[in-house]
Simulated assay, not measured.
Amino acid sequence: MTHPLNSNTPRLPGRPKRSEEALPMDQMILRISSNLFMENGYEAISLQQIAKACGVTKASIYYHFENKAQLFTASVTSMTGMARMHTKRIMGQEGPLLDRLRELAEVKLARPHGDFETIMREARASLSPEQIQAIMASEEAITDVLTESFQQSMDRGEIRSGDPLFLAHTFSSLLMVGNREISADYNLSPSHLAHKIMDLFWHGVAPT
């Protein structure tokens, strides 16, 4: 099994979609670069490749971002900010916790992604302590939303009492397992994979 970060030829998108062309240039660059970084890793993607994928010059990238590390940090924090917004929307809906978690899993697994921890290990040497802290804080903001939802469900008696932060980290870790290679190995759609992961998270491995 070949990990996307080890590919010699990163997959690049073609021309920006019409919806992306309508965005301000810096937002278009962030959206496209976040997809490239998440699918291919930090080292595999150059600013020249990002510029080509965006349909702009490399000078245009430098006009908005000082260097690759700054662009990576902005891309990741922008992506996690959107993820927090979607997480908050889904978890704030009415209905059973299981249904909301399953919907959240389907949304996340529908988007191709590599192993974020591997990507961060690769990028860490190029990032400043402040940039690393900004990325960590943006991730923690998503965890906070999940933690609050688990605590509320515990207070309602919907799930047994425990450590809501531990549950949030466990749930997030299980979703990280569901990357595109595993989906392909088992020939599962994002929806089917989300159901399998949620069944394991919700029921565990003990016999019923």
Rank of each mutant, 00 (worst) to 15 (best):
residue 73 T to P: 10
residue 133 Q to H: 14
residue 127 L to F: 09
residue 111 R to I: 13
residue 83 A to F: 10
residue 32 I to H: 03
residue 104 L to S: 02
residue 20 E to H: 10
residue 114 G to Y: 01
residue 115 D to C: 02
residue 23 L to W: 03
residue 78 S to H: 15
residue 96 P to W: 01
residue 37 F to P: 01
residue 112 P to N: 08
residue 60 S to A: 15
residue 41 G to Y: 00
residue 78 S to G: 12
residue 54 C to P: 00
residue 56 V to R: 04
residue 98 L to W: 04
residue 72 F to V: 13
residue 92 G to C: 13
residue 47 L to T: 10
residue 113 H to I: 04
residue 122 E to Q: 13
residue 119 I to P: 00
residue 52 K to Q: 10
residue 136 M to F: 10
residue 74 A to M: 13
residue 99 D to V: 03
residue 115 D to P: 00
residue 63 Y to A: 12
residue 70 Q to R: 11
residue 114 G to V: 05
residue 63 Y to S: 07
residue 24 P to E: 10
residue 141 A to E: 13
residue 48 Q to F: 08
residue 130 E to S: 15
residue 64 H to G: 05
residue 104 L to G: 00
residue 111 R to W: 09
residue 110 A to C: 03
residue 23 L to H: 02
residue 73 T to N: 04
residue 55 G to T: 07
residue 96 P to E: 12
residue 132 I to H: 01
residue 75 S to K: 11
residue 138 S to F: 08
residue 102 R to L: 15
residue 70 Q to T: 13
residue 115 D to L: 02
residue 63 Y to G: 01
residue 36 L to T: 01
residue 44 A to P: 00
residue 100 R to I: 06
residue 50 I to S: 08
residue 100 R to E: 02
residue 103 E to T: 15
residue 73 T to Y: 14
residue 137 A to M: 09
residue 40 N to G: 02
residue 106 E to H: 10
residue 26 D to E: 09
residue 67 N to Q: 10
residue 132 I to E: 15
residue 107 V to Y: 08
residue 128 S to I: 03
residue 122 E to D: 15
residue 59 A to T: 14
residue 24 P to L: 09
residue 46 S to E: 09
residue 77 T to M: 03
residue 103 E to R: 11
residue 138 S to T: 14
residue 29 I to G: 02
